[in-house]
Design a protein around this nucleic acid. Structure first.
Lengths: 155, 155
DNA sequence: GCTCAATCGACAACATGTTGTCAATAAACC
DNA sequence: GGTTTATTGACAACATGTTGTCGATTGAGC
C-alpha cells in the first residue's frame, strides 16, 4: 500500500470517526439539555479563565462568530449562559456561565472522562499520543498547502 | 498524560482535522463544479461497479438516504449523474455517472492523489497505517459502546 | 479632534447533515 | 393469492456550520 493509498484510507477513517464522535457526544449530553456543539461553547467559556465575548469564544474554538452567536443565543434562552454588560465595549456583551451552565458542563465533563476511559480500554496511551501527533502534523501540512496556493490555478 | 487525557486530545484533533479536510476537499474540486460531498457521491457511484439506487449509495457511504437524495438531485441538475429506470423497482431509479460526471470524478481523483502525496511528504506510510488502525479500532469501540450503553433512548 | 480601518453583533442565504412522516412499491409470509 | 412488513423516494423541520452584508462601536493614525 503506497503512501497515497495509506493517506486516503486515513482520511476516510477521519470522516467516519468524526461523525461517530459527534453522535456519541450528543448521546452523552442529551439529557443534560446539551449537544456536542453547545457543550463545546460551554467549554470554551468555562476554560477561558475570564469572560469572553461571542467573537472571542469563536476565536478560541476555531469557529466563526456567527455559528457561536446562534449557539450562545440558544444557550442563553435555556439558561446555561448569561450575557453580562462589557465595560470595554458597549455592544460586545460578555458570555458567562450561569449556575445551571456550570452544573451541566461539570456533569458532561465527568461523563466524557468515564466514556473516554471505556472506549479506549484496549488502547496504549503511547499509540493515542502518536496518532494525535500524526494528525496534528497532517493538519499543519494541509493548512500550509492551502496557503501556498490553489493548485488548480497553478497547474 | 493519562489515557483519558490522551484520548481527549486525539478526539479534539480529529474534529479539527475533519474540518480542515473538508475545506481542502472543497478547494480541490471547486472549479470542477464539485464539493467534498458531491465528490463523495460520485465516488460511491463510480466505485460500486454496478448502478446504485439512492438508498444503496447512502448505505455505501454511511450517510442517510435523504442527504444523498438531495446531493443526487443537485448532481443530476448539473449533469454529473443521470437517473436511469430500474427494471427491478419502479420507484427506485438507478444513479449512473454521465460522461461529465466521469470526467469530473477522474479529475478530482488525480488532484487528490497529488494533494495527498504533497501533504504526507514527511510521513512514514507505516505511521499512516498505524493511525488508521487505531482510529478504526476506536470507532468500533465507540459504536459498541453506543449500542450497549444508551438505555435512555430505549426505555 | 477627526477620519478611517478593524472589530463586533445581527441578519440573510446557503451547504450539509440529521430525524420524522408519508405514500408507493416490493418482498415475505401464511 | 391476499395480507403484512420492509424498503424507497419525497417532503418538512431542524441542527450545525459557512459566507456575505450591514450598521454600530472602538481604536489608531494624522
Amino acid at each position: 500500500m503506497s503512501r497515497v493509498e495509506a493517506a486516503t484510507a486515513l482520511i476516510l477513517e477521519v470522516f467516519r470517526l468524526n461523525g461517530a464522535l459527534l453522535a456519541a457526544g450528543d448521546a452523552l449530553t442529551r439529557d443534560l439539555g446539551l449537544t456536542s456543539a453547545r457543550w463545546q461553547v460551554l467549554g470554551a467559556v468555562a476554560l477561558a479563565g475570564r469572560p469572553l465575548t461571542v467573537a472571542g469564544a469563536a476565536r478560541a474554538m476555531g469557529l466563526t462568530r456567527q455559528a457561536v452567536r446562534r449557539l450562545v443565543t440558544e444557550l442563553a434562552a435555556d439558561g446555561f449562559v448569561a450575557l453580562a454588560p462589557n465595560p470595554d465595549h458597549r455592544r460586545a456583551a460578555l458570555v458567562v456561565l450561569t449556575e445551571d451552565g456550570q452544573r451541566a458542563y461539570a456533569a458532561a465533563q465527568e461523563r466524557q472522562a468515564a466514556w473516554a476511559a471505556r472506549v479506549t480500554e484496549g488502547c496504549e496511551p503511547a499509540s493515542l499520543r502518536d496518532s494525535t501527533t500524526l494528525l496534528r502534523c497532517l493538519r499543519a501540512a494541509l493548512e500550509r498547502d492551502e496557503e501556498s496556493g490553489a493548485p488548480e490555478t497553478g497547474s
